[in-house]
Each structure stands twice: as C-alpha cells, then as structure tokens.
Design a protein around this nucleic acid. Sequence first.
RNA 1: GGGUAUAUAGCUCAACGGUUAGAGCGCUUGAUUCACAUUCAAGAGGUUGAAGGUUCGAAUCCUUCUAUGCCCACCA
Length: 924
Amino acid sequence: MSNKELPKAYNPADYEDAIYKKWEESGFFNPDNLPCEIPTKGRGAKRVSQGEKGEPYSIMMPPPNVTGVLHLGHALENSLMDIMARYQRMNGKKVLLLPGTDHAAVATQAKVEKILIEQGIKNPRQEFGREKLLEKIRKYAEESKSTILKQIKKMGTSCDWSRLAYTFDEARNSAVNTVFTKMYNDGLIYRGKRIVNWDAKLQTTISDDEIVWQEEKVPFYYLQYGPFVIATARPETKFGDKYVVMHPDDERYKKYKHGDKFECEWINGKVSATVIKDKIIDPEFGSGVMTITPWHDMVDFEISQRHNLSGEQIIDFNGKLLPIAGEFVGMKILEARPKIAEKLKAKGLLVKVEENYLHRVAKGDRSNSSVEPQIKEQWFVDVNKTIPSKNKSLKDLMREAVTVGHNNDPKQKVKITPERFAKTYLHWIDNLRDWCISRQIWWGHRIPVYYRKQGMTNFQFSISNEMQNANAKDEIYVGTGQPRGEGWVQDEDTLDTWFSSGLWTFSTLGWPEQAKNLKTFHPTSWMQMGYEILFFWMARMILMSTYTLDQIPFKDVYIHGMLRNEAGKKFSKSSGNNIDPLEVIAKFGTDALRLSVIAGIAPGNDSKFYKEKVEGARNMVNKLWNVARYIIINCHSGGSEERATDRISSGFYRSAGASLQNDSLTAADNWILNRLQTLIAEVLADFDNFRFSEAAERLRVFTWDDLADWYLEVSKFEKTYKKKELLQYILENILKLWHPFMPFVTEVLWQEIGKKELLMVEKWPKSDAIASLQHDKGEFEVIKDIVVAIRNARAENKVEPAKKVKAVIYAGKKKAQIESQRELIKSLRTGLSELEIETDGEKIDGAIYAAVGEIEIYLLGAVDSEKEKIRLEKELANLKKVIKAAEVRLTNKEFTDKAPAAIVKKEKDKLKGWQVELKNLKNS
RNA sequence: GGGUAUAUAGCUCAACGGUUAGAGCGCUUGAUUCACAUUCAAGAGGUUGAAGGUUCGAAUCCUUCUAUGCCCACCA
C-alpha cells in the first residue's frame, strides 16, 4: 500500500474507506462471485472456482427503520452479522448478507408529522392531503435511508449491495399483496368490528405490542348501582352501563339470577339493568360486582361477546365525550372525570373515594399519549382458524416451528440462543389474539382491497345483531392489482408494518417473481435480533414463512441484549445520552468499535458500553498492528528502503507451515505452535456456539500475552532462519483469525505483507490435531516460569533493574533441558550476569530464594533484605496451608474411594510437588 | 400476581461439579533509545448477595430468602 515503513501507530482513518471500496469492487460481497468449496466425502473440502455451486449461507439484515440514523444497537447488530458472515465466507461458504431498510409505517409517519407540526403546520394530514403528505414522508425516508446505508458501509459490513431491499419498494409490495390475497382466500383474513387500541393523537389503531403501560395514581370511586356497589377509576365511561356482572358461585348474590332485570337511578337518569353471571369476575376484588363498558374495555368487550350483549360508544376518536354523556358532551376525559364524580355525589350515588389508587394507563409507544380501547372496523388475521390446506392454525405453525419442527421435521426447527427465549415465545403464542393488521395512517402498504361502493361508519351499533352487517360494502375485490371496471375504490387503510417485515426472509429474495435465489438461500442460515422484537418480528417471520412457503425462515436465531451506558441506562435520544457510532469510528476506528460492542456480551443479556472499553479495543487493534510491524521489520532481509512488495518478490514470504514439522524447532517454537493450534480449535468451537466474545478474548490472550509478550521477545534472541518463517506463519494465521472481528486492520496488514488476494476470501485456518501433539509446550512453560520467578524475586526485593546478578539454579532432572535454554533465560530481561545450572546443591546463604515446583533458584549479589524474609515466611505459611488441606483430602477415604482416579492422582502429584517446595524453602 | 434473568476484586466480565477463583480497566511500585507509552515488568485487592441442603468435593446443583432489571397478565 505504501512504500514507506508502517507508521508506529495504526491510524484507521487512513485506510478504512479505501479498503471498503476495494472489497466492494472485488465483487465478493455478492455470493455469486465467490470462490466456494464443495464438501466431498472423506477427502475434505475442495476449492472450486466461482460460478460453481458452494454451500449457501445466508443472513438477512434486520432492516433498520428509516426514521433517522443508526445508533449503537445497530453497530452491535452489524458487528455480529458481519463477524458471522466473514467467518463463514472464509470457510468457503457461499455467503449472502442481504442489506435493507424498513419503512416503519407508524413510526416514520409520526416522526415526519412531528417535524411538520414543529414547523408550524397544525394538522399535516388535513393541510397536505394523502398524496402530498406521502411525498413529504417519502423524501424524509429516502434521506434517512441514504444516511443509514452509508453508516452500514462505515461499519465494514460485507453485505451484497446488488440485492439491497426496502420493505416499501415495489418488489416487497408485490409480496405483501400476494400474501394478503392468499390469506384472504384461505379465509384467514377477515374484516370486523372489534375492540382495538386507538391512539387519538396519531389517529390510528395500534397493536397490543405498541402499547406501554404507565402507572398513575388516580382517585378510585365506589358507586351505588341499584342494589350493588361497583368500583371504578373511570366514571366517564359509565354512562351507558346497563349490565351488572358477578361470579356465578358468589354466595352473596345468590338471589340474583342471570338475566334478572331491574331499574335504577344512574348518572343521567333511570337505566334498565340486567344481571350477568360470568366466571371472569374475581369475587375477592372489591364488592365482587362490576358493570361493563363493552366499547371501551377489552375485558368488557369479551364478556359482551360471550353473552351476546350490546354496547355503545361513549368517547369519540379524538378522546372527547359523545352526546350520551349529556351535559358533559365534548369534554375531554380527564376534564370530565371530577365533574362526573361531583354529579354522582350530588345524586347520592357516590359511596366513597379512595385517593391515590394505583392505576395502569395505556400509552402509545410512538405518541406517548393515552390509548383508548375503541370498537372499529378493522382487518384481522385469524390465528386460530384452521388453514384449509394444512389442517392447522397459524398459531400451530408458530408453535411447532420451535417445538417439534415445522411439519414435524426436526431439520425444520428454529433453534433459539439462548434457549430460554423459546419459553417466553411459546408463552406469548399461547396468549395470542387475532392480529389486527390495519392502520389508519397513510405511510404503508395500502390494503389490497377494493370496493365498488364506499360505506359509512356508524357510531352506534348493537354488537350482537349488527356485527355481520354493519358497513357491508356492496361489492369487494381482493387481489394483487386494481380490479377491472369503473367505480372501484381502494380501502383507505394501510397495513401494520410488521406484515411486510414478516415476509423479510423471502420477500428480499425476489419472491413471488423469482424462484432461483429463494431456492438457494431460503431458509436462511442465521438470524440475530434483540429480545425486544422477538414477538414483533421473529414470531411474524415464522408465521409468514411457514404459512406461505411451508418453510421455517431461519435455522438459528441469536438473541442479543441491549447496550446500556456506564450507569446501566438505556441509550436514547430523549435522555440525551445517545452515542453516534460514526463519532466513535472517527476517534477510535471501526475495528475498535466492532470489538468493543461484542466484548463481554452474553446472548440475551444486556451489556455496558463505555469509553474505556473502546480504548481497550483500540489498544488491541494497535497491538496487532505492532506485532505485524515487528514481524515485517525483523523478517526483512534487505535494506530499510525496500518495499514490502519487493520483499515478497524476492521470495522470502512464501507460504510457511509446510516445513514446520521437523526437529529444528526450539522449545519456544514448539510452545507457540502448540498454543496456536489450540487457539484455532477453540475459536472454531466458539463460532459454532455463537460465543463471539469468548473467541475475541482468546485471540487477545494469544496475540498479546503469548505472542507479543513472550514469543516475539524470544525471537529477539533466538534469531534462527526458521524463526522468520515461523513468525510469518503465525502472523498469517492470526490475521485470518482476527479478520471477522477487525476486518480493516487485518486486511491492511495482509496487503502489507505482500498478499495479492484479499484476506476476506482467504481460507480459514484449520486446527491440525497431529501437529498439536507434536509441538510440546511444556518445555518452554518451565522456562517461562523460571523467568517470571526471577523477575518477581528481583522486584520484590527492590533490586535495581540495571543491577546484574548471578543466579544459581538447582534443576534436578530438568538440568539438561534448562541448560539448553541458559542464554534464552538470561536474555529475557532477568538481569543475570551469570547463570549456573546444577542438578542439586547446598543452600546458599545471603541469596534471594525462589522456586518453580521442584526447581530452586538463588540470586546472588543482591542484598537479602528484611523484605525477602517476610516474603519467604508468607510463602511458607501459604505452602503449609495448601499442603495441610491436600493431606486432609487425601487421607479422607471417601475422597480416595469415590473421586475419579485421575483426580486423586492429580491431587497426589500436586501434594508431592508442594512438599518438595516446602522442603527446599525450609532449607534456604 | 405469574415468568425470567442477574448478583464473583473498586468497575466491566471469566471460571460450564475437581480443590491456591482468573482477565481487562482502575490503583500501587518500578522501567524507558529495542514493534508498540495506544508500551513493558512486578504487586496489592475476593468468607463468590444471605441462609440451609445434596456431594468425597459447590462460585457452579437443589430449596428458601434478599436486591436489581426485564417480560407477561382481564384486579374492574
């Protein structure tokens, strides 16, 4: 890349954009261009050229909402997806990571309307009308979309831009209409007056999932209703109450029979009331009696349905009282409530008031204003009805996908990580009601239903009798395109945004028009999402895919937690603690950001994100940079002006590894190779089990502790020709292993060591079990321990670092082995002027003593301070303690009898070692 | 009310029934022409939230409790 030596510190901004461009231009983001492997029986995987079929691996990006810009949560998702995609790609899979965005119906329209209102437009819908307002929203969405796509690129995400999708584009609209029509024809979609959540501010229906409950302290009124006392927090809904409900087994009300009628005085005069008996009533609560308001309460509506009762609208769609409220007509609920209470009191109907009653109020999560249950004509998906061709309901399909597997096929099972979320998912399914899919907003897929004549909406109707007939249209057409003929009017409503999101895994693959991509990449291989959209999204994808394609949408779902700030608070714009990923990238680089968001995370658990974490990650990136820098400089045989690429052409950097199996390796060489082989095997297992954080941690330990702190230090002394080859071999391997986590710096370095191909499509390292056995790590471990012991003894005794001392080691059986590493030990910053190695010997007076197992070390020429005495005494005490504990354990017959032999032996060996150490320590 | 998760060093997290409970950050002491101060060496710091139980052996399994977070629910 450059003809200069590498800078001392890695500066991400100098490389990232160019690298991303290079990846894009390579075409390898598109699986069709990838060199792939075909697994062959018995002989390992075979590399084949592009165009041939490889094993597909597909991930559909959860499409970010076009309501703004990406936040840290998206950074986490992009990191997770891209880590997986890059890993699989390097494993020879035909990887598709498909990018996209979501039009986020209610959220986006609400956002744009809010902006317009802030700009002084009182009622954007009235002022602009449907088409003009849609145009404004579209413009906003497009701008937001383009920002988001740029951010995804900045994250280094290796997605196939040629397949970019949008939940609201033409191809996705076609999919939506097709599925809607299919469901309608299967009788799964119906239109009906049902109780729904009405957001008066947004003037639309919202789903149960879009509601947030807030606790409020309100007065709780006890009212006299005929012979009964009823309690309510909402007297303003009670004008039309004419049914009084109690539990059938409640002894107190035995004399009242179901269907009994009586007259009583009520808010606005006499009413005729009917007694209803229903088991839903809790006799323990209050008086055990309540009146019902079917139009404005979910439970009351259900009771009314069960007993075929009528209801009446009390509150209009703007949250104001209707004429039934008499003199309170036109008042807002909260304004009317105390006034109604006053009137009741004046009439002697108010028994008592409990102040500060804790009441839960429904609020819209987008509008944050109160949500009133209302009865409206809506479109629903029936989740309980049997699907004609399947003899199962949608609920069954959703359930079976995570329990027995779709169609009882274990291969068609969605596996959720962590497993516990399967439980909550199933619980949610069990309590699922019909899905209200219509919304009274404009930004969204318009319901593909056409009427020949437009009906009117009634404010009043009898639920029991008029349900089927109310608002019936003369003629109806449901289909993917406009019907022929004159006079057709399309339904005004749009679809719940999750209807289109539910199709995401296959609408993105061109369904229903194209079949080839679908066949290759569906079901998708892996999906990741936050637990907060498990029900919104995962459930609906499973529903849509099993119903439409007879396939599960994905094999594995990885649930990640939420990123929180240092104090454990959610990041949010409103609380002003938002962190812009682009700012983090500008300061620390994308690799550092990616590493910091996945560090320390466990599936399904929240994690904390803070500056020190990114700094740590940045340091790790820089460490890797300098490891490479050292290897490039030191494995360099020519003059300093020589370019990296020139060095390659001189033939130095040829593929290493083939000649690493002979006996010319040193103890340190064997050790590092052993560690590398273990690392490769463990990282593989981590990936297979989605343990991203653990894999990165393992790589950090190897790179920083084993390689940089030990092996590179050794290599400064052991300057064998083989060393260069080895260093090159190790570097190549760790660049590959790190690549999914920090794609930019590894790709830069890959080029710096003269590789012509992109690291992105290099082959993932394979752990070779035989090699790992061949490379003994034990010999060098002893050397390490001796070095640490000497450094430690010096530091504890405050021996000046510059002061050279003589050391004597009594090495016992390991004499020859340690003898061979004498000069290495001296070179590893032990500050030794001389090193004598004996099998055994006398205690040396006035020397510092240290021990490594049975090996004794004496440092001469340093003052044996008082500190040394204290240190040794402390060590002695500790040694005695552990020996005692081990002795007790080993004399316990139960332990020696019941514990596995290997454990007992290990324990015995350990005790023996300690005892020798103790003996030596006493002697010294 | 039901469910679920978490509780380990000052902070963030490991340790997945095997015995002196480990890292990173922070802290303390020291180093400095060497690939890296985005560095290096060394150190201090823990009755594993509490109490019982199972086991030869428990941070780990069981029970109860406490604290905190999240999800669900029809207390009118």
